[in-house]
Amino acid sequence: MEYKAPSSIDEAVMLLAQANGKAHVLAGGTDLLVQIRAGFTKPTLVVDVKNILELRTISVADDGVCIGAAVTGAELGEHDAVKAAWPGLVEATELIGSTQIQGRASLGGNLCNASPAADTVPALVAASAICLIAGPNGQREAPVEQIVTGPGQTSLKNSEFVVQFQLPKKLPRSADAYLRFIPRTEMDIAVVGAGVNLTLDKKGICQQARVALGAVAPTVLLVEAGAKALIGSTLDDAALDKLRAAASAACNPIDDKRGTVEFRVDVAGVLAKRAVLIAKQRAEMN
């Protein structure tokens, strides 16, 4: 296995394009190294992207926030501006692993590892994040929800990788929230994850909403019916009940030792509703 650590996007693209055999991008390695050690994947080339400036930078501008794909959870958690604008995304990121894992784990790795239970993905989808992708044919953009196509599978072409995540301009009276359910108190894989992003008007009526669920289908779900249930309402009990039902109805989970179908379906509704209440409270304050 060969290890390379290029310092530019172009160099990284070239290395990946020229690889013969299996090549992997390496960010924090908290998924990849575990998989290599367990013998699940045997790459011939590993391209470490942590030395590429664009992937390690967080920039805040008037039209939104850009987060480098290899920025670590710890870095994001200490970034006051991002925390203030996207508390839900930051709380999702900070749920990953432990203090040690936080020092390594990245958004790019969490997305591209393509686990149905990845914690930041529902939050990214709810936030309408766009990926900037580099590849042999230059750079392109794609919404986060188009990246993962199934467990362990992405729509990235050979030698493409994610450079950064672009979050839209933050509107007044809007906020996001993320909740996950695990059987334990920490360090566990989500049985259900729920990300919500809301915009209210001055009267508290919901103008925009996005609801995304993790771990209840092969890929993260964007629950349009859930958003519909909320938009136009004051997020009263009736609307919340409709949302809960819509969230449960959207689920198509697996039945396994970590959680049965009925349980995941029901808890998905419960969590979506609770996440809306948190986002609402935050939106009312800003």
């Binding site: 359910f181 059987p183 959680g259 049965t260 009925e262 349980f263 029901d266 808890v267």
Partner: peptide
């Protein structure tokens, strides 16, 4: 007494 057992 796992969460699922209590829920169920």
């Amino acid at each position: 007494l796992t969460p699922e057992r209590i829920w169920r």
